[in-house]
Each structure stands twice: as structure tokens, then as C-alpha cells.
């Protein structure tokens, strides 16, 4: 799949933002006055910036409000509702904390659950797609949630929970790559089933429908980066998981650890899109 910058920014920033929001709303760490303004501000800016970035890849962003209508069937619509609800609940919780110096704990729990539900809805936009076998698996949602929780723990300064969650997310990421690499082959969808000609012999794409690229090949048949996949995966693993975990063992390194984690997650999300193979590529003799 084409790794659109807007989608990489969106999934990374809003994932971390909602992860942070979940921790803050649970009272981890307990915050008051200016510290609360700073941390909640950071979480709202990240979550909000991600959501705004996501509208940049729309053909008609001015119609974005229509996306709230189809929550019964569409994960994208559910995500819009959950994100709005999470931001509203967290906003009320933060306002009470900052202006009235009151912690409304149940509202915080609700906001935390809604924040994580938003991340889950985001993950399901990808995991629901049978056409992209690499994504069509429980590990996609698990990984999105694990990265949001790990990033949230890290940004809220919960050193030991952060180390455990980051390492857990790293193991999950490794598992997702390990199993994802063979999921297209395991899906059973091949050029033979795509054309229905498999019973007659070996099917080979002889000639494409046109000499140039088209929307489908640009959007879904992205092959440029795959040759460096192993190197990119290694760098991303080090940046997103290894460096932050080691830095958290030392004092006064929180912001450095957060920066490394952010860079690593951006790379992971780039790979998430760039490595995903859409079955339509088979029709073009590619994957």
C-alpha cells in the first residue's frame, strides 16, 4: 500500500496522543494546575494534529462531517464518533481538574476507555480488510493498542510500566512481522483464483491493461521500499523499543526516550503501509 504521509502522521500522533490521554485520565501521574495544562495540552495537540492530518488525504475534506453517519457498518465512522467522545470526555475531566481542582474519577475512567476504543477503531479500519492479508489479523489491533499504551506510559513518565509495555509491544511487533510475511501466501488468493484460470495451467500476467500507472497501481502496489525492509525493520526496532527502554533506566532522559520512540513508531507505521500487499496487485503480476 502507498505510505501516505498524512496517514503515517495520523496513526502515529493520534495513537500516542490517545495513549497519553488514557494514562492522564486514570490519574497517572496525578496532576494539578500548570502541570495538568501542559500534559493534557500535549495529549490534545497530538491526538488533534493526527486527526487533522488524516483529513489531508481526503478528496473532499469539506464533507468530512458526513463520515459520522455510518457507525452501524463502518469502522471509519465509528472511529470518528469514538475520537470525538474521547476528546469531549477527556476535555471535561481536564477542565474540572484544572479550573475546579476536582478529580472526577469515573469521568476519567470513561475517557480512558474511550481513548483506547478510538485506537482500536483505527486499527480495525486496517484489520477489517480481507484484501490486505498482512493486516487482516488480530495482531494488527493488538499492536496498535500496545503501541498506544507503551507511548502513553512513556510520555506520562511512568518509567517501569513504560519499559514493560515497550518491550511487550516490541515482541508483538516482531511476531506481527514474522507471521505477516507469509499471510498473503496463506490467504489462498493467487493469480490463479483471481482469474479463475488456475485449473488450466500456470497463469502469468502477459500484458497490463495500459502502458502507464493508474490509481490502483499507485495506491495499492507499492514496492519501492521492500528491498530495504530488513534494514528498516532493524532500525525501527532499535529506535522504537530498544533505545527508549535503555534510556528509561537512566535518570533525566524521558524526553530523549520519547523522541526516539516517536521516530521509531513513525518508521514502523511507514513500514506498516509500505510492506502491506493488496491482492489487486496479483492482477498486475505484482505483489
Amino acid at each position: 500500500m502507498h505510505p501516505a504521509r498524512s496517514l503515517i502522521l495520523f496513526t502515529t500522533l493520534s495513537g500516542l496522543g490517545f495513549g497519553l490521554l488514557a494514562f492522564l485520565c486514570l490519574g497517572l501521574p496525578p496532576l494539578t494546575s500548570w502541570a495538568a495544562v501542559f500534559f493534557f495540552g500535549l495529549a490534545f495537540v497530538m491526538a488533534g494534529a493526527g486527526l487533522i492530518a488524516s483529513t489531508f488525504h481526503l478528496g473532499h475534506p469539506e464533507r468530512a462531517l458526513k463520515a459520522f453517519t455510518q457507525w452501524r457498518s463502518s469502522w471509519l465512522s465509528r472511529e470518528a464518533w469514538l475520537a470525538t467522545a474521547a476528546l469531549a470526555a477527556a476535555g471535561l475531566y481536564a477542565a474540572a481538574l484544572i479550573f475546579a481542582d476536582t478529580r472526577v474519577a469515573p469521568l476519567g475512567w470513561l475517557a480512558a476507555v474511550l481513548s483506547l476504543a478510538t485506537v482500536y477503531a483505527t486499527s480495525m479500519i486496517y484489520a477489517q480488510l480481507k484484501t490486505v492479508p498482512r493486516w487482516h489479523h488480530w495482531s494488527t489491533s493488538a499492536l496498535f493498542l500496545a503501541l498506544a499504551l507503551a507511548g502513553g506510559a512513556l510520555l506520562s513518565g511512568q518509567a517501569w510500566p513504560a519499559i514493560v509495555l515497550i518491550l511487550g509491544a516490541g515482541v508483538l511487533q516482531f511476531y506481527a512481522w514474522k507471521t505477516g510475511d507469509r499471510r498473503l501466501a496463506d490467504s489462498g488468493t493467487t493469480l490463479a483464483t483471481a482469474t479463475g484460470l488456475g485449473a488450466r495451467g500456470e497463469v502469468r500476467a502477459f500484458e497490463p491493461p495500459h502502458t502507464g500507472p493508474n490509481y490502483l497501481t499507485r495506491e495499492m502496489v507499492f514496492v519501492v521500499a521492500r528491498k530495504h525492509a530488513l534494514k528498516l525493520r532493524s532500525i525501527a526496532l532499535v529506535l522504537a523499543f530498544l533505545v527508549p527502554s535503555l534510556l528509561l533506566l537512566l535518570p533525566y532522559t524521558l524526553s530523549l526516550a520519547a523522541a526516539a520512540h516517536l521516530a521509531g513508531v513513525l518508521m514502523l507505521r511507514w513500514l506498516f503501509f509500505a510492506e502491506a500487499e493488496h491482492v489487486v496487485g496479483l492482477y498486475y503480476g505484482k505483489r
Binding site: M1, G59, H60, A64, K130, T189, Y215, H278, V280, Y283
Partner: peptide, 26 residues
């Protein structure tokens, strides 16, 4: 007139039957 051009339907189609118009963005 309701399409926001998000492209998710084209991703969901295994056959490549949907294309985003390069000018109209629907």
C-alpha cells in the same frame, strides 16, 4: 455528492473495480 474521497472502498475491493477520479476526487 456524499463521497469524501477517503479511498477506503477502493482498498476494500479485491478486484480493483474502484478508482478515485484524478480531477473530481470522488
Amino acid at each position: 455528492t456524499d463521497c469524501i474521497g477517503c479511498g477506503l472502498c477502493a482498498w476494500a475491493c479485491p478486484y480493483g473495480a474502484r478508482e478515485l477520479d484524478p480531477v473530481e476526487k470522488v
